[in-house]
């Protein structure tokens, strides 16, 4: 492999990893606070891609790249805000009706409702837009870029990575610096004690779902911009990888989820480069198993004992 190809694949890996990381954050935040594997989260990402498709293609009537920079930035801001707010609200609604009534039920119950919600979301989209691949407008010209040595780096990749890193840093600051962030951390640590100290548990959990789902909504917009299409089952594939990323990084740990996302991006890309595209999932999961055997809490996870 020459240097150009290597550089190119590094960029590919970072871009793919950025998308996984964005979705993985939602898994890890929800698990961190209520210890629920929210299996519907991948489908929230998928619905996000359709919401953004609707806004851009049907509402704005856009078909291809926008060349005027001011207009491009404006449309992108609207697309991200709209998709993130809509999906954030969807997340809150899901939590309110599918998980909150079961908060004190045995752990298996909300897991089952999560799988149910996943199917409901898929079916809604299937009925709304049909089970077919649909084109999403690629607002940023996917061929435009600059050269680094012999490698071609596209602006869209830079944009995807920047968006993901920006949102991850923003989330980190939110959790570590704000009052609500502190409420989230204390709820994760000990729900009852937090409640006794005056933390509104329901609001805190709802906000957690809002943020996690909004990040998935952002990933949905990225899916459309980067790949230029969407399909109603992408949530399953993307969700599974992102869930793996969250576990790999140490579920409950947001930095770990981001790290896990990029790790899986690298594994997949270099498995493809080596000619094992069909093995990439097997390789990803083998590494996951190895990590869990030797570091059961994931790369950055902390032992649960510290929690209680």
């Amino acid at each position: 492999m020459d240097v150009g190809t290597l550089t190119q694949q590094l960029v590919n890996a970072l871009t793919l990893g950025a998308i996984y990381a964005l979705i993985a954050l939602g898994y890890t935040m929800v698990y961190g606070i209520i210890e629920l594997i929210n299996f519907a989260h991948g489908d929230v990402f998928m619905v996000g891609s359709f919401v953004s498709l609707w806004l851009l293609a049907d509402f704005f009537g856009l078909r291809g790249p926008i060349n005027n920079p001011a207009e491009l930035v404006g449309v992108l801001v609207v697309a991200f805000v709209f998709s993130m707010v809509v999906m954030g609200l969807v997340g809150v609604v899901i939590e309110r009706f599918a998980y909150r009534p079961l908060r004190n039920a045995p752990r298996l119950a909300p897991l089952i409702t999560a799988i149910g919600v996943s199917f409901i979301l898929q079916n809604i989209i299937q009925i709304w837009r049909g089970p077919a691949q649909l084109n999403s407008p690629q607002l940023i010209n996917v061929q435009a870029g600059f050269r680094v040595g012999s490698a071609e780096v596209h602006w869209i990749s830079v944009f995807v990575i920047a968006i993901a890193v920006g949102l991850i840093i923003g989330l980190h600051l939110f959790i570590s610096r704000t009052r609500m962030g502190r409420a989230m951390r204390s709820t994760a640590l000990d729900r009852e004690a937090a409640q006794l100290m005056g933390v509104d548990i329901n609001t805190t959990i709802a906000v957690t779902f809002f943020i996690g789902s909004a990040l998935a909504g952002a990933a949905g917009v990225v899916q459309g911009l980067y790949y230029g299409y969407t399909f109603f089952t992408i949530g399953f594939q993307g969700g599974l990888k992102a869930f793996t990323a969250a576990v790999l990084g140490g579920i409950g740990n947001t930095t770990g989820a981001a790290l896990g996302g990029f790790t899986i991006g690298f594994i997949e890309v270099f498995a493809s480069q080596a000619g094992y595209a069909n093995w990439s999932e097997a390789i990803v999961f083998s590494i996951l198993i190895l990590v869990l055997v030797f570091r059961p809490t994931g790369l950055l996870g902390q032992p649960t004992a510290e929690r209680g």
Binding site: T5, Q9, N12, Y227, V269, F270, A277, N278, E281
Partner: peptide, 20 residues
């Protein structure tokens, strides 16, 4: 020659390897 089933949605890395 690459085999990529319906579960593959990102061909970018395959294409980068092929392009070389």
């Amino acid at each position: 020659r690459d085999g990529a089933g319906a579960n593959v949605s990102d061909y970018t890395s395959l294409l980068t390897a092929a392009k070389a």
